[in-house]
Write a protein that binds this DNA or RNA. Structure first.
Lengths: 228, 228, 228, 228
DNA sequence: AATGAATGAGTGTTCATTCAT
DNA sequence: AATGAATGAACACTCATTCAT
């Protein structure tokens, strides 16, 4: 199962200006893989693992179907790769937040809003995760990538809670994982079930003012949950 | 889209004579439909709409595949029926709670625990709802059954909040729908993502002590959210 | 793996004449299976297991491709069935020979000629067996059908040899299996390699006079081998 | 299906000056071709023409797939080349036997044993020939190589028979070709059908003592066939 | 001389659905 | 009421071969 074997990296000859003379990518193996991954992500998110069609993924990636098997081995392996990337992207975005220097309450609010916005702006993530859970986590179970990427994922929130407790704004005894899950839950559930929710509650849950209402409710809820 | 409410329940009451004059039990058309629905619910929950196999549904229902088309018209219509039943069951269980005579805080806690337990005991519900949302609610969009069954769904919570506010235990200005969604969210998210969650957080989210921790955290959270 | 499940057999109501009123075969499951088997035999013989095309088999059987999987489960299972039938047919033809009442030498000659003619008239048999041996016997290894059908296959020849030895026309100490194999070999090899043979020996091995020459040579050879 | 006879062989006619000064061992083009041929022989023998995979042949030859097309033109042309080599090797081995100075009976026995051993030690040969015959000899039909290599193939046996007849140990009127074919047949058939044979006769035809039994039976049979 | 990227036509197999009884 | 037979379109995946470097 070859993948990303087109490692060439530092081919910038000394003297060539920084990004300027980017060599046009041999015959574009890397670009093809990227297009396939992107297309696959979209299709898997839209239709689930079973529902997505390899032909469609290939077509939308402007690649030959055969390339998918050449680079990823199978539909399921491609799905795994897509999931790993999706998690990786989220975690990287989380890490970029840099909340350590902010006042704990402000930092927490920022994290809640970030999580909400990430779901809103990356609707694929939610459906991908749902798909994987429908399959009982079979594709990530043995994923070293996910394991390495999700290591120490609670550190940030733990630090934040510790700081808040020390300064007296947060109560003590809060389980970081439970809080983390809750922050995700309040946004995720609303968005993943927006269709049935809109029918059941007879209103458009995705209307801008509804979205605004929801994020404010969530921020307020989380603050209340942790407040001293 | 046939309805066929399939009423039968407790048939042979003690004391009724042998086979007596009891109406000859409409063959077992009704029973067949029930078996199909039950089998379909399980299969759809397990594999999604696309992943479920009509053959398997028929086989597990000990019915002929043709019967599915005879009674329900199509796989999608069957899926719709299954969803309607699933929602109907939840709402009926909710209605049976009878929280009106309880102290507001107690009643709310009871509702949170009920919701959590319902998800735990009816894991099919969660995956069915996920499936329908993957399909953008297409099967329930025009469902009169769902509409009628979900009418006034917030009444109970609204009354509860009003009572709590009047007695001073709940703060004012709480949006019943947002709260309702949050109560569901805190349980639903944890359970629907239990597989990826267990990988990411490196622990068995379904271990009894973990489940206990979670429901207590949820109850505490909701109470904090509404408390005055 | 359903197969031949359309057993209905003794549906001849008492009173209906013997074979006369043959019921017109419901919706012809049996006939379809037969057509598929026959078509498959031909295609497998012509192109081997790997080379045969399921589509072509279906088409030539005037059946839907799906039926192949309905009745036989897979291409390989179909191949197995074809092999079992092919062996069954040969053995049945062998059994019909009734050589017991013939003078040993005459009987042996008859058997040699029969074997040769069977190969000539059933060229499929040879290529099917070659195919199966290319696959190291994987499809017949666990075939109960073959095992049961090939039981006591040497009896006839053993009896024949015993009779001949007693009457003094055959020498003693002849291994029935080796002889059996040799009888087959002398015909089989000539016919299975008729194409390369014709090239190598620069003559048409299938020309009528060549065939005649060959069978006479074989008869003579076998008789010499066993003669006292 | 392009043929592209892939002529390369002996193109440097003796006397052409230019290249004169000993060609510097064409890089390792020659070695690559050899590795490809060897790998191809094995794969074709194992899986047949249709079943062999160009990728696998290339991989096992530690060569690039493209090289196969560069040197041989097509899969079928490669197959042809493999066949030609296989026949060439057998004939060369035959020629090396030098039976002319041996007593006719001894010489014949030696030839029978040689043939058997060659099949045993070169199992590829048998399956290759079977494959080609499955394809009706299409790849060797127009092979000048095979034609030239198989010229006068019967000479040796004809001489041997003549010598034996003259000395009175062999009977007269024996067709050399039929005998040649029979010698091959008795070994070839046993070995090519060893898998189905072992199932049918319920014994391991490849067990050392069984092989011994067979070759002795064959030697004895051939001697009886030709004896005066 | 040698190689990885790319392809289109095809493989066996599966599916929801309809037909005939 | 119930069933086995039948179907056509599609599906994931494969292959020999060619292109570009």
């Amino acid at each position: 199962m070859t993948q990303a074997e087109s490692r060439e990296g530092t081919d910038s000859l000394p003297g060539t200006s920084p990004e300027a003379t980017r060599i046009p990518r041999k015959r574009d193996a890397e670009a093809t893989q990227k297009r396939i991954l992107s297309s696959a992500k979209h299709e898997f998110a839209m239709s689930g693992l079973g529902g997505a069609r390899v032909d469609v993924i290939a077509e939308k990636a402007e690649a030959n179907k055969r390339m998918i098997y050449h680079y990823f081995g199978s539909k399921e392996a491609l799905f795994t790769k897509v999931l790993e990337e999706a998690y990786g992207d989220l975690y990287e975005a989380e890490r970029k937040l840099k909340l350590d220097h902010l006042e704990p309450k402000v930092a927490l609010e920022r994290f809640v809003r970030f999580t909400w916005n990430y779901y809103l702006e990356n609707p694929d993530f939610i459906t991908l995760v749902n798909s994987e859970n429908l399959h009982k986590g079979a594709h990530l179970e043995n994923s070293d990538v996910l394991k390495s990427v999700s290591k120490n994922r609670l550190h940030m929130l733990e630090n934040l809670l510790a700081r808040g407790q020390k300064s007296g704004v947060f109560r003590s005894g809060i389980d970081a994982m439970q809080l983390h899950i809750s922050i995700a839950a309040l946004g995720y559930y609303y968005l993943t079930n927006r269709y049935t929710g809109s029918i059941v509650f007879r209103c458009d849950l995705m209307a801008p003012e509804m979205l605004k209402k929801r994020i404010e409710f969530n921020v307020d809820s989380i603050i209340r949950i942790v407040s001293a």
